[in-house]
């Protein structure tokens, strides 16, 4: 045992643990871990995308197949579908780790829980938000949106889903201790997501009309930045309470 030098010197005066990796390295490790776990359960990755495609298909069937008329409601359809789809996988954002005890170990690791949860949220966005943003232009084409609007749609959904993942992280952390949290999670998250919906749908509409949409994108970006500063703090506080 002694040759392992596993037990550190017990009287060391410094507070920080020896050999502790930096905060960025820890966040990267967490991101890598969550991506690896997600790809080992790959079937779950496709579900939000399939749901998004399904919801956008409902509208032509329910309203009209005429592309000229669908074009008018396209921004609303895309954003409502994007918001709902990004809620789907949220319930398990922290729940799996809470159930097997790994989240507790991270909470007791002496590392900032805010950074760890921010990394988990980033992984969640990479796995659901980014794919949604990538297929949103496809869905838009199916709703009669002209090609010149697609970059604007890609950009706005990309920014909007960042904020959705951040808000979702708060909701998931708050409902971590609730058994069947799906509906409650949506009820908590959607009102907070209204500004994303408003600015996102507006940017999309401007893009469809061929008007400059930079200002609306800026507002979406501002929401995302604001979310990045606030959401990990709130999520960490809620996770700690729910682990207690």
């Amino acid at each position: 045992m002694s040759e392992l030098s596993v037990v550190p010197s017990l009287t060391r005066p410094e507070r920080a643990p020896r050999n502790a990796p930096g905060a960025a390295a820890v966040a990267w490790m967490m991101l890598e871990r969550d991506l690896k776990l997600a790809f080992r359960k790959a079937s779950q990755l496709v579900q939000p995308l399939a749901f998004f495609a399904m919801v956008t298909t409902l509208f032509p069937l329910a309203i009209t197949p005429e592309l000229t008329r669908l074009r008018h409601i396209a921004s609303g359809v895309l954003w409502a579908a994007a918001l709902l789809s990004s809620l789907l996988a949220l319930e398990f954002l922290f729940r799996d780790d809470a159930q097997d005890g790994t989240l507790e170990q991270y909470a007791l690791s002496g590392r900032a829980l805010t950074g760890l949860l921010a990394a988990k949220t980033a992984a969640h966005w990479l796995l659901t938000g980014l794919p949604l943003a990538l297929i949103a232009p496809l869905a838009a084409v199916s709703l009669g949106v002209p090609a010149h609007a697609l970059p604007g749609i890609l950009a706005s959904v990309t920014l909007g889903t960042v904020t959705m993942s951040l808000l979702g992280a708060i909701g998931a952390a708050l409902t971590l201790g609730v058994r069947r949290a799906g509906a409650l999670l949506s009820l908590l998250t959607l009102p907070l997501a209204i500004p994303v919906l408003i600015f996102g749908a507006h940017a999309t509409q401007l893009a469809i009309r061929g008007q400059p949409y930079g200002a609306a994108l800026t507002l979406l970006g501002a929401l995302a930045v604001f979310g990045m500063t606030l959401a990990p703090l709130a999520a960490a506080a809620a996770v700690r309470i729910n682990l207690e």
């Binding site: 708060i170 708050l174 201790g177 908590l188 009102p191 907070l192 209204i194 500004p195 408003i198 600015f199 929401l223 604001f226 606030l230 709130a234 506080a237 809620a238 309470i241 729910n242």
Partner: peptide, 19 residues
């Protein structure tokens, strides 16, 4: 937990209102 939600909510109320 609900206290955390209320704090998050009250920060968001003006943002929601102005949007």
């Amino acid at each position: 937990v609900s206290a955390v939600l209320a704090v998050v909510g009250v920060i968001n109320v003006p943002i929601i209102h102005y949007s």
